[in-house]
């Protein structure tokens, strides 16, 4: 794709405008006191000021990025291992674990990590990591299993080493499934990170929880608006990533099989 085409495409993409809207809302939040004062006249302090919304958003993104990044490394690695000859015995167990683990509610996982690590950001990251591993793992296993045997056989016949085949052929072909697992993980994590404020992590959930505790609806609206917008924006960008990977992999797949 020519760089110019990318620019043209982005200009028409709602994700770019939504991202700008998110940045605008986060930056302008400190100046919205008159607006929220008019909306909720009974509240003496209509805008959350304990931490700036820039700091809250960055802290929120840090929680999600650290946990999802770690989960991606671990989940993709384990997914590769159980689809190789050496780890084949473990595959049914890991598959069952990933399926059952996803029936565990995120709140329960979050609450259960408190006994292990106490309060704060650390148990939140642990819980988010644990929860994110499962969909990524499931996506990786599904994706690698969906690679047709004819393709891997052809690659072996062409003289690919096991490693070269994995990196050059199997992973690119599996990438749409991996990205879809990662997307599920990140979106769930954005929501669970907000609840992480109940166990003491700083996130966009902090104004929501303080608002709920002190009956300050304005705080609730502010936190909820930003975190909802953040989730929608990130999901839109994953949509781009998904269409890019499926385009690339189907293109490559065709050139190999034909």
């Amino acid at each position: 794709m020519h760089p110019h085409d990318v620019v043209v495409r982005l200009a028409h993409a709602p994700s770019l405008w939504l991202t700008l809207l998110l940045v605008g809302v986060v930056l302008l939040m400190p100046h919205t006191a008159p607006l929220f004062h008019a909306w909720f006249p009974d509240l003496p302090r209509p805008v959350y000021t304990r931490a700036s919304f820039v700091a809250l958003t960055l802290a929120h993104l840090e929680l999600v990025a650290l946990s999802s990044g770690g989960a991606a490394l671990f989940g993709i690695g384990l997914g590769i291992f159980v689809t190789r000859e050496a780890g084949r015995d473990l595959a049914p167990l890991v598959g069952a674990l990933a399926a059952i683990g996803q029936t565990f509610p995120p709140v329960a996982v979050l609450a259960l990590s408190v006994p292990l690590l106490g309060y704060g950001a650390a148990p939140t990251i642990l819980a988010l990591w644990l929860y994110a591993v499962l969909p990524i793992l499931e996506g990786t296993i599904t994706g690698l299993r969906a690679v047709p045997a004819a393709v891997t056989d052809a690659a072996t016949g062409m003289g690919f080493s096991a490693q070269g085949r994995l990196l050059g052929i199997e992973l690119p072909l599996a990438s749409p499934f991996v990205v879809s697992g990662l997307r599920t993980a990140v979106i769930i994590n954005i929501g669970t990170a907000a609840i992480g404020s109940t166990i003491g992590a700083l996130s966009l959930g902090s104004p929501i929880l303080e608002g709920l505790a002190t009956s300050n609806s304005a705080y609730v609206v502010q936190g909820a608006l930003v975190v909802a917008l953040l989730a929608v924006v990130v999901d839109r960008w994953f949509d781009h990533l998904a269409s890019m990977t499926s385009f690339r992999s189907s293109g490559r797949g065709r050139s190999i099989t034909s």
Partner: peptide
């Protein structure tokens, strides 16, 4: 995609 606590709020 909207977080549960945000939708409640």
């Amino acid at each position: 995609t909207i977080p549960s606590i945000a939708l409640f709020g």
